[in-house]
Design a binder for these strands. Structure first.
Length: 351
DNA sequence: TCTGGGGTCCTAGGACCC
DNA sequence: TCTGGGGTCCTAGGACCC
């Protein structure tokens, strides 16, 4: 199968509508104001070369690259571009498309010449959207996904059982899809620092540290093994959430109360659009500077906004008074339809 | 340097039941 | 008096992804 990833997607969409920005360091994040509490969504390759990456506080990015053009996030524009890309992928002969996010998808296809298929796919996306993408070819989802990085930008790379360890073996475990900073550090504590080290590990030996499911799963990741099935079943969201970081920490109970009401209204908008009842709520609180707590509660199925609000306010009663609140988030879980897809390879949204 | 917003899944531990 | 073994459900929190 193939894994398709748009190159610097958000920055590329912005440059398309402002051609004069081509070749300049472009940073997209927040409302485009480097003084606000926000982070970088995407940086152009020019900005990345100067040390800016996604997730970095906007303030820091602006300090690092004073000459950068900083733009606000424009969800609608990216959604539109994303829809055009995905439609193009779906229109390819024999393609099964599993969307992973705004700028990423797996494409399942039977072909004698995957490289040629990948090239024609890149050409189709470029013709339709003027956007460049990189393509990974693999015999499992994990290998295809990892292969894409070696194709960037605008290239193609193939990763299979045959060359997996040659290419990936000496690389740090963190480069694997599903291994982040924390897990790689815990693996290192077990003496496992590279992909080949993880591939050689006995799956059962990882159970004491990571549990019965995740332990063997990490060993499998190290080998690049896993499912080879591209699943295009439409994804059904399990819940919806909204969160807000306050530019000034909240110190009054009435401010917190107002914020909870506002969040609830926003979440209920998203939930109402799905037409499924709410079955649970989770309130997330970040006290300044960076202590996060969550409070969860199952509730009897309801579609009544008044009841949801009342339960949200119940949860909010657990917020400690006299501690400045920097962030509030509310997530509503929804009843799942019987035919909804559940499984091991979730389609994630976001970017 | 000071940390967004939207998602998903897994695990631990306690409560409760038989 | 001190205590089994198995199961489910719930909350809190950790980790990961884009």
């Amino acid at each position: 199968m193939l894994h398709v990833d748009l190159d610097q997607f958000i920055a590329a969409v912005e440059v398309l509508r402002r051609p004069e920005l081509a070749g300049r360091p472009v940073i997209v994040g927040g409302h485009g104001d480097p003084n606000e509490r926000a982070v970088v969504s995407t940086a152009s390759y020019e900005a990345r070369a100067l040390g800016v990456g996604s997730g970095m506080p906007l303030r820091i990015a602006a300090r690092k690259v004073p000459e950068a053009v900083i733009l606000p996030v424009d969800h609608e524009a990216y959604m539109e571009a994303s829809d055009a890309v995905m439609a193009t992928l779906r229109s390819q002969p024999g393609a099964t498309v599993q969307v992973l996010g705004w700028d990423e998808a797996f494409v399942g296809v039977e072909t004698e010449d995957p490289e040629a298929y990948a090239r024609s796919l890149q050409a189709a996306v470029l013709a339709r959207t003027r956007l460049h993408c990189s393509v990974g070819i693999g015999d499992t989802l994990v290998r295809a996904k990892n292969a894409t990085d070696f194709g960037k930008p605008a290239g193609i790379f193939r990763l299979t059982k045959e060359n997996w360890l040659d290419v990936m073996g000496e690389r740090p475990t963190k480069e694997l899809w599903g291994v982040g900073n924390r897990i790689s550090a815990r693996l290192a504590a077990l003496g496992i620092t590279t992909v080949s080290g993880l591939a050689a590990a006995d799956p059962l030996s990882l159970v004491p540290e990571f549990g019965p499911k995740m332990g063997p799963w990490y060993a499998q990741l190290g080998r690049g093994d896993g499912t080879a099935v591209v699943d295009d079943t439409p994804w059904t969201a399990r819940g919806h959430s909204r969160e807000t970081t306050f530019q000034q920490d909240l110190t009054e109970a009435s401010q917190v109360d107002d914020a909870v009401r506002q969040l609830t209204a926003q979440v209920l908008e998203d939930v109402a659009a799905e037409g499924r009842p709410v079955t649970g709520l989770t309130l997330k609180v970040r006290y300044a500077p960076f202590v996060t707590k969550t409070h969860a509660k199952k509730i009897p199925e309801t579609s009544d906004p008044e009841i949801v609000l009342a339960r949200a306010l119940d949860l909010a009663a657990a917020i400690e008074p006299d501690r400045p609140v920097r962030l509030l988030g509310l997530r509503a879980e929804m009843a799942m339809p019987d035919d909804a897809r559940k499984g091991h390879t979730p389609t994630r949204s976001g970017w």
